[in-house]
Design a protein around this nucleic acid. Structure first.
Length: 354
DNA sequence: AATACGTGGTG
DNA sequence: TCACCAAGTAT
């Protein structure tokens, strides 16, 4: 018995599917790959302007492989999950070195590239190579968890495995590229997280959750945990020319590889900051002035960012360290900066009482 | 297996 | 205001 699921879905896709997204034009493995990486945990409307600018600057894998890493990160600035950008360039370099500049057309070799996992490799195979391959992204997880009434949170391995099983069963041998786009579109446009439009669904007739009137129960929700609260001083160190000291962050961890304002331990009080700067950076600083702080929420914790402004002579330590630099504001904004730091450098300073 | 990794939209 | 979550991967 043939799987009608795919056929019904394809019929719906022909009428209602999205076919005009930027990465649908001039489709090749490179453009598909970049779009898939950008779209990881990131919404389509957010990605579109980034994708356009990225393609303008890095039209092909060779341009990306040979670019300065700062250039790549600056084009990622504001997108988040910056390991994606670092891995993107590493993968580009590997494609040039290991595969002579051509993306491999098989699952294992694609997955051997940094940043490409099971689902992304399958998406590239289906979209760029028109090979039968099975994806499982957030949209597909939601559609299948409902369609087969799979209980539990998809973050659990057992639940994930069941969803992969269903996904592979439905994947057709014909029109895989369209099918892959179709099931994502269904999740994005019809089988949405809240208020799904079941009356418009092409596969509602076989939807187990709908039959039980339990669509809202799927997929199971993530167990909620308390997010820890952290605090940090963010230093706005400015020399007499109005240049600001920035520091490159370590390659791993939060905002890895990006430029940021220097941080200091929150245990220092405001009066101690100038001396602490002298000890830490070898800078002579005048009195620290606190600016209005704010709370930034990450996936796993809240960070109270407390900015302080200090005037300095503009030297640092015995010599210029490679991971430090003085930048004019305009210059700084062309670097790869985390979104909250960009805000701090852009918005007019506000004094604050501590 | 569970957690870290960003940001902006949504209710 | 705030938890939840979106075209997941790496460790």
């Amino acid at each position: 018995m043939p799987d009608r699921f795919a056929q019904r879905l394809l019929g719906w896709y022909d009428r209602h599917g999205r076919k005009q997204l930027p990465w649908h034009h001039n489709r090749n493995a490179y453009r598909v790959w970049v779009s898939e990486i950008m779209l990881q945990q990131t919404q389509v409307t957010t990605v579109i302007p980034y994708f356009e600018a990225f393609m303008e600057r890095f039209p092909g894998v060779h341009e990306l492989a040979s670019a300065p890493v700062d250039d790549v990160l600056s084009h990622w600035s504001g997108l988040g999950y910056y390991a994606r950008a670092r891995n993107l360039q590493k993968a580009a370099q590997q494609v040039v070195e290991r595969f002579d500049g051509e993306f491999p057309g098989n699952q294992d070799e694609l997955e051997s590239l940094p940043g490409i996992g099971r689902s992304t490799a399958a998406a590239i195979l289906a979209q760029a190579f028109q090979q039968r391959a099975t994806i499982l992204d957030g949209n597909v997880k939601r559609v299948l968890a409902r369609h087969h009434a799979v209980p539990g949170w998809p973050g659990q391995t057992a639940v994930l495995n069941r969803l992969w099983q269903h996904a592979e069963t439905h994947t057709p041998h014909q029109r895989v590229r369209d099918y892959t786009q179709a099931i994502m579109d269904l999740g994005a446009m019809v089988c949405t997280r809240s208020r799904p439009a079941c009356e418009d669904c092409p596969v509602v007739a076989t939807c187990e959750a709908y039959a039980r009137d339990e669509v809202r129960l799927y997929p199971g929700s993530k167990p909620k945990k308390q997010k820890p609260e952290k605090t940090t001083w963010m230093l706005i160190l400015e020399d007499h020319e109005g240049r600001v000291l920035l520091q490159r962050r370590p390659p791993s961890g939060i905002w890895g590889g990006l430029w940021s304002l220097p941080e200091l331990d929150p245990a220092y009080n405001l009066e101690e900051l100038a001396d602490a700067c002298a000890d830490t950076f070898g800078l002579t600083c005048s009195e620290a002035i606190a600016q209005a702080g704010f709370r930034h929420t990450f996936s796993h914790y809240h960070l109270h960012i407390q900015p302080a402004r200090l005037l300095t002579a503009g030297h640092i330590g015995v010599h210029e360290a490679p991971d430090h630099g003085w930048f004019h504001r305009d210059e700084a904004l062309t670097l790869g900066l985390p979104a909250p730091i960009r805000t701090l450098l852009t918005e007019p300073a506000q004094a604050a009482l501590i």
